[in-house]
Design a binder for these strands. Structure first.
Lengths: 117, 117
DNA sequence: CTTTATAAGTCGCTAACCGATATATAACCA
DNA sequence: TGGTTATATATCGGTTAGCGACTTATAAAG
């Protein structure tokens, strides 16, 4: 599995993986976490979210966590589906962060060069 | 003009603006510069390049530099079209780099949090 | 018993990218 | 002379990911 084949990630996808990197979550929780994580800047539409989850599952970057979400499944709404980041998913996420770091470094060099003459 | 309305930029678009931030260039020169700038990682297809240039022109983020490219227009190929970054384009580029910096910072925090427990 | 919050899913559209292909021009060289 | 290569711009068809709008389902609150 070559992480670079999955890059670059678009912003919503990056935030979804990043959200799952801390704890396993169900879709709606990801939605809220991403909004908080991005300081309110990124508000995923539910279509973006659920389509991305299906795609990431298909790619093996995330996986379903089976089982009836503890015993306390007395929450409103449809039954939750909990996801986790797979090792592949974590590698892709790390690779993307490394890519972004390089990008920022390159950009800053260029912008400095442009400003200094 | 609200720079954030143009964000996030996709990777090819970011590199095109970044390439023009240093010097004015024609399309083909951008193509080669982006490849060098990205250490060979990003090879724009000509369709991506010229469609992006048309779009960026339309958005006012770049502009044509008129005039027959100095007197020495004895280069092969069709006549060159030289572009420059507009002030708006530079603001958008700067905003994008700031966005990316924030993204990297957020991601590193999250990844540290995930690793430490 | 209607509204609100939670939760998942679907549809049609669009923007941006990409591979393939076309066209034009000058230089090189056999 | 005429074929190849490098330079240079342009267009077409297809794909992907995101997004707005909408739908369905469930429990609690009022």
């Amino acid at each position: 599995m070559e992480p670079s084949a999955y890059l670059p990630l678009r912003e919503p996808t990056l935030f979804i993986l990043l959200s799952l990197s801390a704890d396993n979550k169900h879709g709606y929780a990801i939605l809220q976490d991403v909004e908080a994580l991005s300081d309110g800047r990124v508000e995923l539409s539910t279509s973006t979210l659920y389509e991305a989850l299906a795609r990431l599952l298909d790619q093996g970057l995330i996986a379903r966590v089976e089982g009836p979400a503890a015993a306390d499944d007395q929450n409103p709404g449809r039954p939750r589906k909990v996801y986790r980041l797979t090792p592949s998913g974590r590698r892709v996420l790390n690779a993307e962060v490394v890519r972004l770091q390089g990008l920022v470094a390159t950009a800053q060099q260029r912008l400095r060069a442009a400003g200094s003459c």
